[in-house]
Design a protein around this nucleic acid. Structure first.
Lengths: 131, 131
DNA sequence: GTCTTATATTCCTTGACAGGTATATACGCG
DNA sequence: CGCGTATATACCTGTCAAGGAATATAAGAC
């Protein structure tokens, strides 16, 4: 099982390819639609799609003369798996900060108790350090 | 606010740099420790660290003659934020699959009910399609 | 078959990046 | 100050990826 290869990351290193993935995430597209939407030339679009395909980040299906591209979520999940340990650390840090803030607020009010939990995995992106 | 720039992804595209991040995730390291642990030459190590630093993926702090590098979790969280919409789709797909399996199993047993929810953000990596 | 649409690939040139060696800087010691 | 350790940078070279233009393939219409 290929797992996340070098090609996967290399493919994501290019901003145009990330833009293509952002479009494809919303809906599957033919090559021509991507050309229209993003304004790259047709050969460039095809070449980038080739890279994404080799990286396992998109799938292609044929419909008449069109090739319909869509995101391969499984590979994305593997990427996510690499990132997960870091996210865990990040969430731990948020929890610490949260507990500290809660305690501080409680101390100021003169009571104690645990303010809302911060246990959601997705929340890492939502709660930003107050700066 | 820089957010996730090109440099961030480009930095991650190199397997050596990802290896360095994996080491630094566990504990902060001096350059020499990374050299010993990963076996790259000292200049190469410094250059890769420079790239990671410019990308905002690591921080450095000085301790005597040593430079102690550690992961910058905030930038990692931003990366995670880019990935989040894809993760959401992936989880939805798992939910669908899970509901389908639950329904199928229930139908076979002749009862009904909702098998455990799959609402945790982190779980994407844990539940793999039954292949 | 020929023509048209949709997409992929080739060729060429250019620019970015990696590794290696040598060297420069920073810090601490005496 | 000179010396040693720890790290960063400069220079050179080979490799690889990207863009553009032209061209090749594939599928449908007639």
């Amino acid at each position: 099982m290929a797992s996340v290869t070098d090609a996967t990351w290399t493919a994501l290193a290019d901003p145009r390819r990330r833009a293509m993935l952002d479009v494809l995430r919303v809906r599957a597209c033919a090559v021509g639609e991507l050309v229209d939407e993003l304004g790259f030339t047709q050969p460039a679009t095809s070449k980038h799609l080739r890279v994404l395909r080799d990286a396992g980040l998109v799938r292609v299906r044929t419909h008449a003369q069109q090739r319909i591209y869509s995101v391969d979520l499984e590979r994305m999940a593997e990427l996510d798996a690499w990132l997960a340990p870091f996210r865990r650390l990040w969430n731990e840090r948020l929890d610490e900060l949260g507990r500290h803030l809660d305690r501080t607020a409680a101390a100021e009010r003169g009571d104690d108790g645990d303010g809302g939990g911060r246990g959601d995995g997705d929340g890492a992106a939502k709660r930003t350090r107050g700066g």
